[in-house]
Design a protein around this nucleic acid. Structure first.
Length: 597
RNA sequence: GGGGCUGUAGCUCAGUCGGUUUCAGAGUGCCGGCCUGUCAAGCCGGAGGUCGCGGGUUCGAGUCCCGUCAGCCCCGCCA
C-alpha cells in the first residue's frame, strides 16, 4: 500500500469494550469526543458509531503516544493501539457503557486533524437549527441523530423483510415521469433531447403502481420518494418517502390486515411497543360527528356532544338563531375542570376564537347538579337538565359549547378537544391508538371554481352501494378509501381503485375531465386498463412520519439525513442555485426574473 | 400569499426607562501556562463582536420606528 495511505487500521470498535476484553490488545479508530489533559496523564474519550471508550495516555509508559495525545483536539480522527484493562478501583464511570474498562495507549496516529467545530453536540445547550443544518455532517455525529438514522434504517429493513415474507416485490419506478393526479404542484425537469418538454418528478408512484397491477405483479411495494412543490411544515418536506403498496384481487380488509401486521411488527422490532390488532375503525362521517375531524386522536375521550335539537328553541338566541340558520350546537365535557378561574376560561374562549369560533359558552357544573354561567339565566330548567344529562355531567365538570355552522363547530371543537386533553394531562406517554377512518366522501365541492374535485384522486373506487348516487347526488357518494390515523397523525392513505372503464369515465365526467384531457394526462393508464386490469387497491404509509413517531421526534427534519428549510433550501449545499448559462442554452430555457428594486 | 416568534463573541444567552462605573457582558468553546485518575476534569491568564442588513427619529440607538434578509411555528396550500 502506498506511503501515507496505510494507517493503523482498527480491529475492534469502541462501544463493545467491556470486562471480557480485559488484557487484549486492540486497535481503535474514531473521533476525539473529549480530551482531558492532566499534565501527566491525558484521557481521550474516543468515539465511533458504536459508542465511546476512554483511552489513557501515560507519558511514562508510551511517551510518543502521549506526545500525539497532547496535539489532538476535539473531532480529530485518531487511531490508537493499546491494551484493554479494568479501570483502577473507584475510577469506573457508571454513566458510560464501557465505563468499567479503559484502553491504555501504546501507539497513536492522527488520521486526520479537524478544525474547531462550530458547535458541539456535547454542549448542554440546544444549537440553533440554522447552524445544525449548515454543518449537517457534524450534527449527524450526535447520539440523537445517529440513533435516528439507525432507527430509520431498522424500520426500512423491517418493512422490507415483512413485505417480502408476504410475497410483495419491491419494484423501482421512475423519478423522471409525467404529472401525477395528486393535486399538488409538480417539480418539473426540462428535457434536453426533447426541447420544450418537461418531465414531472412523481408526487407518488400512483399510476405506475396501478400499471404494475395490470402487469401481473399482484403485490408491489417500494420505499418511494415522493416530490411535491408545496410549502413546508414541521411534518412536511418537499421530498418524502412512502411505503408505497398495491395489491391485486383485494378488498379493503385485505389491505388493513397486511398493514396492521406490518405496523405491529415494525413497532415491536424498533421500539418494543405493542400494537393491538385489528385496529379500531370508524367511518369518516362518524369521526366528524364524534371528534370534529377526520384524524381524531383516540388516546383520550372528550367526545363531542350534539346539543342542536336540545337548544333549538332556547331563549338563548346564540343557540336558537344558530340552529335556525342551519348551524349546530355541540360541546365537550372537561371532567373536573369546574375549578378553572375566570382568566383561564377567558383564555379558552380566546383559543376557540383563534380557531374560527365566534365565541365559547362555558358552564360550570356545581353541586345539585346545577349549572353556573353568565348564560345560565337564559337556559330553561328543561334545557339545563337536558344538558346535564346529555353531557353526563357531574358536579365539578366544565362544559364547553360552540354554536356555529357545522364546519366551524367541528374545527374549533377539534382544536379545543386536543387543547383540553393537553391541559388535563389525558395523554398517557407511550400510548398508541391506531384508527382506520373509512368511507371518505368521493368528491369535495370547490366553491371558488364551482366544480367537483376528487377528495383522494380520480382513480378511487366509489362505494358499491353509492354507484347510483353518481348521477343524482355526487356529494353523498362514499369512496372505498381509507386513512390510517395514529395518535391524531395521518399516517397512511389509500383506496380500492377503479378497474372498470365505464365507472372511470363517469368519474372523469363528474370531475369535468374531458376525454381529450383524460387521454392526454392518463391515456397510457386507461389504455392499459383495456387489457385485463385486475381489481386492485393500495395504500401508502408515510415513512418519515412513521420514523418520526417511533423516534419520538416532533419534527420530520430530525429523521431525514439532509432535510431542507421552510424555503425548501439546503443550507449545507446552497441548493437550489443558479444554472450554468450553457446548460440553460442546451435546454432552450431563458430565465426571466421579476424586476428588482 | 398571510399571521406570529427569533436574530448580540465560534456556540448558548443576558442586556431594565434611549444616556451615567453593566454598554460591549456572562457561561461554554478556543489559544497559552500549571497540573498523573479525570470523565461537563481543575486552577491561572489571554484572544475573540459591523449587536442580521439598510434607512429613519434623536444631542445620543444593541434598545424606538420603517424596510429588508434569514431561521422556526402556524393559516392558506399540501401528504
Amino acid at each position: 500500500m502506498a506511503e501515507g495511505i496505510a494507517f493503523l487500521k482498527r480491529n475492534c470498535i469502541c462501544g463493545v469494550l467491556g470486562m471480557d476484553y480485559v488484557g487484549r490488545e486492540v486497535i481503535l479508530n474514531g473521533w476525539v469526543n473529549r480530551r482531558r489533559d492532566h499534565g501527566g496523564l491525558i484521557f481521550v474519550d474516543l468515539r465511533d458509531r458504536s459508542g465511546i471508550v476512554q483511552v489513557v495516555f501515560d507519558p511514562s509508559h508510551a511517551p510518543e503516544a502521549h506526545a500525539i495525545a497532547q496535539e489532538v483536539r476535539t473531532e480529530y480522527v485518531l487511531a490508537v493501539r493499546g491494551i484493554v484493562r479494568k479501570r483502577p478501583a473507584g475510577t469506573e464511570n457508571p454513566e458510560l457503557p464501557t465505563g468499567e474498562v479503559e484502553v491504555v495507549a501504546r501507539e497513536a496516529e492522527v488520521l486526520n486533524p479537524s478544525e474547531t467545530p462550530p458547535f458541539s453536540h456535547q454542549d448542554r445547550t440546544q444549537t440553533d437549527e440554522f447552524i445544525r443544518l449548515k454543518y449537517r455532517y457534524l450534527d449527524l455525529r450526535s447520539p440523537r441523530m445517529q440513533a435516528n438514522l439507525e432507527l430509520r434504517h431498522l424500520a426500512a429493513q423491517t418493512v422490507r423483510a415483512f413485505l417480502t415474507e408476504e410475497g410483495f416485490w419491491e419494484v423501482e419506478t421512475p423519478i423522471l415521469f409525467k404529472p401525477t393526479p395528486e393535486g399538488a404542484r409538480d417539480y418539473l425537469v426540462p428535457s434536453r433531447v426533447s426541447p420544450g418538454n418537461f418531465y414531472a418528478l412523481p408526487q407518488s408512484p400512483q399510476t405506475l403502481k396501478q400499471l404494475l397491477m395490470v402487469a401481473g405483479v399482484e403485490k408491489y411495494f417500494q420505499l418511494a420518494r415522493c416530490l411535491r412543490d408545496e410549502d413546508l411544515r414541521a411534518d412536511r418536506q418537499p421530498e418524502h418517502t412512502q411505503i408505497d403498496m398495491e395489491m391485486s384481487f383485494v378488498e379493503p380488509d385485505d389491505i388493513f390486515d397486511v398493514v396492521e401486521r406490518m405496523l405491529q411488527r415494525l413497532f415491536q422490532e424498533t421500539i418494543g411497543a405493542e400494537l393491538k390488532i385489528p385496529f379500531e375503525r370508524i367511518t369518516y362521517a362518524e369521526a366528524l360527528r364524534r371528534f370534529g375531524t377526520d384524524k381524531p386522536d383516540m388516546r383520550f375521550p372528550l367526545e363531542l356532544v350534539d346539543l342542536t335539537d336540545l337548544v333549538a328553541n332556547s331563549q338563548f338566541q346564540v343557540f336558537s338563531r344558530t340552529v335556525a340558520s342551519g348551524g349546530q350546537v355541540k360541546g365537550i365535557n372537561a371532567k373536573d375542570c369546574a375549578c378553572y378561574t375566570r382568566s383561564q376560561l377567558d383564555n379558552l374562549t380566546d383559543f376557540a376564537k383563534q380557531h374560527k369560533a365566534q365565541g365559547l359558552v362555558w358552564l360550570l357544573v356545581k353541586e345539585g347538579p346545577v349549572l353556573e354561567s353568565p348564560v345560565a339565566k337564559f337556559l330553561s330548567e328543561e334545557e339545563q337538565a337536558g344538558l346535564i344529562e346529555r353531557f353526563q355531567a357531574r358536579p365539578g365538570d366544565l362544559l364547553l359549547i360552540v354554536a356555529d355552522q357545522p364546519a366551524i363547530v367541528a374545527e374549533s371543537l377539534d382544536w379545543l378537544r386536543r387543547e383540553m386533553a393537553r391541559r388535563m394531562g389525558l395523554i398517557q406517554p407511550g400510548a398508541w391508538k391506531p384508527l382506520w377512518v373509512v368511507e371518505f366522501p368521493m368528491f369535495a365541492w370547490n366553491e371558488e371554481e364551482k366544480r367537483w374535485e376528487a377528495e383522494h384522486h380520480p382513480f378511487c373506487m366509489p362505494h358499491p352501494d353509492d354507484l347510483d348516487l353518481l348521477d343524482t347526488d355526487p356529494g353523498r357518494v362514499r369512496a372505498q378509501s381509507y386513512d390510517l390515523v395514529i395518535n391524531g397523525v395521518e399516517l397512511a392513505s389509500g383506496s380500492i381503485r377503479i378497474h372498470r372503464r365505464d365507472i372511470q369515465q363517469k368519474i372523469f365526467d363528474l370531475l369535468g375531465i374531458t376525454p381529450e384531457e383524460a387521454e392526454k394526462r392518463f391515456g397510457f393508464l386507461l389504455k392499459a386498463f383495456e387489457y385485463g386490469a385486475p381489481p386492485h387497491g393500495g395504500i401508502a404509509p408515510g415513512f418519515d412520519r412513521l420514523v418520526m413517531m417511533l423516534a419520538g421526534e416532533e419534527n420530520i427534519r430530525e429523521v431525514i439525513a439532509f432535510p431542507k428549510t421552510q424555503r425548501a433550501q439546503c443550507l449545507m449545499s446552497g441548493a437550489p442555485c443558479e444554472a450554468d448559462p450553457q446548460a440553460l442554452r442546451e435546454l432552450h430555457i431563458k430565465v426571466e426574473l421579476p424586476p428588482q428594486e
